[in-house]
Design a protein around this nucleic acid. Structure first.
Lengths: 267, 267
DNA sequence: TAAGAAACAAGCATAAACGATCATAATCGC
DNA sequence: GCGATTATGATCGTTTATGCTTGTTTCTTA
């Protein structure tokens, strides 16, 4: 029985009843409990199900960090579902890098979005140009949200300054958290050219640039270069990153954090 | 029987009847009383039900604490439904005052919000500090949304500049559309003092100040004065406005438009 | 108001489920 | 083919869910 078959079976069972017990899977699947667990783990990381003690269940909106605010009424990209579990772990690891009370910048993206739930209570001042991030942070106890001046770009749901200035002349932060469409030898890339200008400005204002990118981001390489690898200080990814990619990153002097293996720090 | 099944059963019973007795759950659930208690405890912690002696019941508004925006008078989401018909007419009349292609400013509020649907296709550039307005205009064909720099105030859902400047130094518009908590001899008033500073700044940037206020706004007079009647150029209201209020407005030299009787322009 | 019954909370024991680690087999890429 | 990577199976210590017991609180009713 191949992993494809198992995966299909598991997901179809969950689709039908919303939940499968581990014992049920043990009966239906030829294979050791360990294999089943690994299947569940993988599928959970991809955001296709949610693991619970004794089995697994369907993912619902509450698991995706959907913001209650009306701003979140803007349809999210399918991207949010992709590798959801990994993004949640990466987001949590990124949030752990924030010092209580400091100011940070958070760029828009489905991965950086997963930082937000973990920022409550840190009393941060968060500058972001992403309305998705604003919606996720709004109403969070102790978190102050700052936005630059500019025009709202509805497709990306971000604010970009239209005059030369953006009303945040003196803002500087110890840390900037960024997403990425892909990361390759050329550097960090975004699929959308509109994003680039805004991100360049954020980079200039940060002491440390931290990039949140799950392992899949190291595969393709299409897009517009935002910055070279050398400009990045830290990349947070997951353990499925290929050795080759990890070597490339290390060669550029970038610190690499593996979110799902907190102790394993390569580079 | 797994915790998911139990959870689903409990919540569905509560959804249907508003209450489940503990004995009822004991009969339906295979498991010890302790397990059921723990389920109820957990669900109550998640806010999905409210525990009462002998069972559990649906959570209602009284259990959820004061709504966050209720600090500023009537909560926004309730306010939206109040006098909705009049507000829609007033909003439509206000939108009719906009010239295609021009830049306008729209202050936050449940009445100004009703302008938004009628602005599509006018190719306006709208500066607003209200995230509610942003959400309503976003994705609208031909409308460009501008926001000032600043901190997001979650209770009012608006952006207020925190540094001296707001990144819109050269912005000036022929028209500003404002809401109001009440209008009296002292002038235009808002229930929330936080709103005042932001609105003052908008007023300074406008050639013409247009206030959207249904007739009920002329009754009470509690709040903080934003500007005197003389600073207002136009008020759009509905035909239920009292003669006395209309006279007061006219005496201040304000143009009064009646939204539900387009031809009747008093003053 | 006081006694009895029901409901409840807290602590403890146990078995199932879990995560981590290592070893082995299958697969892939050069 | 050979090394590297990946998938699988087995083991072990830890965590979690559940059930039971005990003592306390709350409701009922006489």
């Amino acid at each position: 029985m191949h992993s494809n078959e198992r995966e299909e079976l598991i997901l179809s069972l969950i689709r039908d009843k919303g939940f499968v017990s581990f014992r049920d899977l043990e009966r239906r699947i030829v294979g050791s409990p360990a294999t089943i667990r690994r299947d569940l783990e993988r599928l959970a990381l991809e955001g296709k199900l949610k693991r619970v003690h004794g089995g697994a269940k369907r993912v619902d909106a509450a698991d995706m960090g959907a913001a209650p605010s009306s701003l979140a009424g803007v349809p999210f990209h399918e991207n949010v579902h992709l590798n959801l579990g990994e993004k949640q772990l990466i987001g949590k690891a990124a949030a752990a890098l924030c010092q209580p009370g400091e100011g940070v910048m958070i760029d828009g993206g489905s991965t950086t979005l997963q930082m937000c739930p973990h920022l409550a209570g840190l009393n941060l001042q968060v500058l972001t140009n992403s309305l998705h991030i604003v919606a996720a942070l709004i109403g969070q106890r102790g978190t102050r949200v700052l936005v630059p001046a500019g025009a709202v770009f509805p497709e990306q749901n971000i604010i970009l300054s239209v005059f030369g200035e953006d009303g945040m002349p003196r803002f500087h932060a110890p840390r900037l958290f960024m997403g990425a469409a892909s990361i390759g030898p050329q550097g960090l890339m975004q699929a959308d050219v509109v994003l680039v200008a805004g991100e360049r400005r954020l980079i200039e204002r940060a002491d440390e640039v931290i990039v949140l990118a799950d392992a899949s981001k190291f595969e393709g390489s299409s897009g517009n270069v935002v910055c070279a690898l050398e400009e990045i200080d830290t990349i947070i990814t997951d353990s499925r990153i290929k050795r080759k990619a990890a070597d490339m990153v290390a060669a550029a002097g970038v610190r690499l954090l593996i979110a799902d293996q907190p102790r394993a720090v390569k580079g």
